[in-house]
Write a protein that binds this DNA or RNA. Structure first.
Lengths: 234, 234
DNA sequence: GTAAAAAACTGCTTTATAGCAGGAAATTTT
DNA sequence: AAAATTTCCTGCTATAAAGCAGTTTTTTAC
């Protein structure tokens, strides 16, 4: 955990380049932060001092909206970046909030340290660039889906996404979200999510054990949204 | 036009770094492409060979949807990138289509050439990274707006965006879009846009000379959507 | 383990938005 | 300049989604 070179998160952009000797000093300045469930560790609009990486746990990234409605912008798990531009971009403030969905451990680097290595190790910068480009592509797909899918389709799409992102064990998704969270990601209201989930249960497509949800019939669900997903990006 | 060093588009990422001698060979391999109005020069799903830059003109970037509905993902003007990952990322295919909104001139670089310089000139790679990061931030803001604003608010937001992006002359926006285009960007239907635009005209907030639209009362329009736009990102 | 709080659920009502159809205006083509 | 095509517009109708209120279940705190 203290050491990026032996870290288990092989997909982490820092880990991928950690053997580069020019990173040695940089890695010494890493901070490790423990975060309890529901704890918010980035507040939208506050000055951005650096970038977080999820070491262990699950995180939701949120943009504040009107009333009680927030928009969950993305989810992050082991090895993934949180805080995006982290202050080394054009904006000096975080454009999102981030909250732990379960007890999590985060790695933190200051923007000065990051900028320093990014301007010196092209391979790393290139990897960062690709990461942002891929995220952008995904975000643009999400723009289209929000604009064009029905609420039911968006909820189904979200369920399938959760399985892809976090996986399932014994027919149950490896993530535990409130109905409100599903709504905030799917771009609808809590009530609508509740109605749709219970309809899906009645239709035998969805499984529910306590608060945990499980997908029973992938094919039928996939089919229902397939007309929107023929494009190259998910 | 043939020369990036004397190019007028100072915001172009290539231009910004064009004095670097390591770019000399790269710049020789630039292609210049002329594009008539309405011409499509990137097709979603086709193999991506490289990246375009708008030299002159205006372009819409589109993701294909169901029925007649497309989603306009962004607009590009002088100096801006089109084609995003352009094949040097994880996907080998364009995830979007691009179409000229007026007669335009484009610059083109192959992905091999690009990858080569990006891995050798950290400053350039860093600029590219920041570009994608900022685009991502904007796209995430758009996700929230699509999910939370009403149709009328989204149309107003689009009008104000057009003024910010393309400017206005004599109370008329410097861009000419169809009602369908406004709909495809705002995430609604043509009819809805028509209805809202004519209401705005009646309310004296909007000006229309032929097909060209102009904003008459910025303040009132800004106020109507202000509750959604208090956040750091537009 | 019990009390308190939060989350999940359901039926009903209201509202916003989409869809259709037919016509007018504007733009492009010949 | 006339014809053809495209874009724009309007009223009406249908429908999807949101909002509200009251109840039950589950989770968290003590």
């Amino acid at each position: 955990m203290a050491d990026c070179i032996t870290c288990k998160n092989k997909n982490c952009l820092i880990n991928k380049n950690s053997t580069d000797p020019r990173l040695a000093d940089f890695l010494k300045n890493k901070h490790t932060i423990k975060c309890k469930k529901s704890q918010q560790f980035i507040m939208e609009g506050t000055p951005a001092h650096g970038l977080f990486f999820a070491y262990e746990g699950k995180v939701k990234v949120v943009k504040t909206g009107v009333n009680d409605r927030e928009q969950i912008v993305r989810f992050a798990k082991d090895g993934e970046i949180i805080g995006h531009r982290g202050g080394f971009g054009s904006s000096k403030y975080y454009s999102i909030s981030a909250q732990a969905l379960e007890d999590s451990t985060l790695c933190y680097f200051s923007k000065e340290d990051l900028k320093n290595i990014l301007l010196n190790i092209p391979k790393l910068t290139f990897d960062f660039m690709l990461f942002y480009a891929d995220e952008l592509s995904e975000s643009e797909t999400r723009v289209r889906k929000l604009a064009q899918m029905s609420v039911r389709e968006r909820v189904i799409d979200t369920l399938l996404f959760m399985d892809r992102k976090f996986g399932s064990t014994d027919q149950l998704l490896n993530i535990r979200l409130s109905r409100k969270d599903y709504a905030d990601y799917s771009g609808t209201t809590e009530e609508q999510v509740i109605r749709i989930l219970s309809t899906l249960k009645k239709e035998g497509l969805l499984n529910a054990k306590g608060r945990k949800l499980g997908i029973l019939d992938f094919e039928t669900l996939q089919n229902e949204i397939s007309k929107h997903t023929y494009s190259p990006n998910s």
